[in-house]
Design a protein around this nucleic acid. Structure first.
Lengths: 252, 252
DNA sequence: CGTTAGTTTGACCTGTATCAAAGCAGGTGG
DNA sequence: CCACCTGCTTTGATACAGGTCAAACTAACG
């Protein structure tokens, strides 16, 4: 479906899906943007969208592939602080300074300036859109907090499960995942830099998840074989408790 | 100086200092808020400002002491995701849902509603203030990212140094630190939950920092004995950023 | 002075890192 | 079609950072 569109159009469509998934945006509140995509960028895995020492060069909408915000330490250690999926913005408000952006897989982006312009525009015509946008920003923030908890208090095993579930959820929202599987283009090295682990340990952790029949991974397809048990491992509410929307009751 | 003011006034003064420290706010841009502080809350260390399962009950300005945003896992593990110092807001935009707020030391807060109202107000009279406010929000965000890097890629030793420097910097901005020291009211247990370590290891790490003559800590006063070397350890070194020096045979 | 919360110590254990080398594609050029 | 890269995954052996448990020490405080 998405694949048949031009990348710019596709990216916008993904963004709108995300915004529409929130409680705030009625489908008819979606404003008509200018057409996007004359300014397509393609990045090979590992390529910088902007390098560590430069300021973000505008903001971009991810059209395909995964992009990461990363910080690189003097001795080469690297921590990826956020993963941007198709439909996400890189370099916008959510992206603080001192973060490089790097393609985590082969990725396409389009210039997001028109989108930003519309969102910044004070016109009441865009009110609903802007509200949805702000909600998405809060989600981004909540995800940073999730990441902190993962890194600070979860074991490698829990961490990995937790992260894979996050990816799945987010991709579901933009329609890029099936209920039990999704395309996971990240190498174990990249996963290591996201999860704060060593490559070797990521490998062993994934093996354990497979051995215990929680996931399957073949040729880029990640299958959540047992999502419930996986969620349990990740320390998420055991009984299908809702999480994303702003009302919830975490377990005791 | 600050101590002689009523807590509400003092808190507001701290906030304004922070906002004024940014590049955007000219001193005369500071708007006169209503007087604050009829609604003072005092919390004992460990007390919830709001518990894990409730939504933030409004937003509060910290007047004194340290407050933390925390997530508690099912089995009791706890990760403090952000530390709010005097002059910071807890529960405002920067604070995402699913975070409890807890007093990390004895702390006072005042209701921040009047401040929020002024900032939300569209009046151009507050434009400069609002801009400063947004800058402060970006700082908060950058701090979350710092925290992620700390937890993901720094050793316990580096992490601790890095965090203490952050505290010092932030307290300097609001005038609550001297150039080489500040009052650090956090217990090692709390530090552990911030740094993602065990209590015992925090203790040993602090000992190491003292043994190597980087810091001193007596009766709540934390002294940065050798800020430069400390910054180096924390990986904020402008100079050679190599592996850990081990100049004095660090033993475990 | 006993109580209590916090810090410190020691002994021991384990999760994760490190090092090194071996398998395993998917692509390339000969 | 094969030999050969090259980048990724997997494996094994070993080392260490940091966790856990338990107890002793310290200092504030009623």
């Amino acid at each position: 479906v998405i694949n048949t569109l031009r990348p710019g159009t596709a990216a916008l469509e993904l963004l709108l899906r995300k915004l529409k998934s929130g409680p705030l945006l009625r489908p008819d509140g979606v404003a008509p943007f200018g057409r996007l995509g004359q300014d397509l960028h393609v990045y090979e895995p590992g390529a910088w969208l902007w390098p560590p020492d430069k300021a973000p060069a505008g903001s971009f909408l991810v059209a395909s592939g995964f992009v990461g915000e990363a910080r690189v330490l003097g001795d080469g250690r690297r921590q990826i602080t956020a993963v941007c999926l198709p439909g996400d913005l890189v370099g916008a408000g959510a992206t603080p300074a001192y973060c490089a952006a790097v393609a985590l897989s082969r990725a396409q982006t389009v210039d997001a300036a028109p989108v930003i312009r519309a969102l910044t525009d004070a016109s009441p015509r865009f009110d609903a859109l802007r509200a949805a946008w702000e909600a998405a920003g809060r989600d981004d923030q909540a995800r940073l907090v999730d990441h902190i908890v993962r890194l600070g208090r979860l074991s490698a095993y829990e961490r990995t499960a937790h992260f894979l579930l996050e990816l799945h959820e987010r991709l579901l929202v933009v329609g890029l995942a099936e209920p039990d599987r999704f395309h996971m283009p990240l190498t174990q090295e990249v996963l290591a830099d996201i999860l704060g682990l060593s490559i070797v340990h990521v490998n062993r952790t994934l093996q354990q998840l497979r051995r215990e029949a929680l996931i399957t991974y073949r040729s880029g397809q990640l299958v959540l074989v047992d999502p419930l048990r996986l969620a349990m491992v990740a320390g998420r509410a055991p009984l299908a408790a809702q999480r994303r929307p702003a009302s919830a009751s975490p377990k005791t």
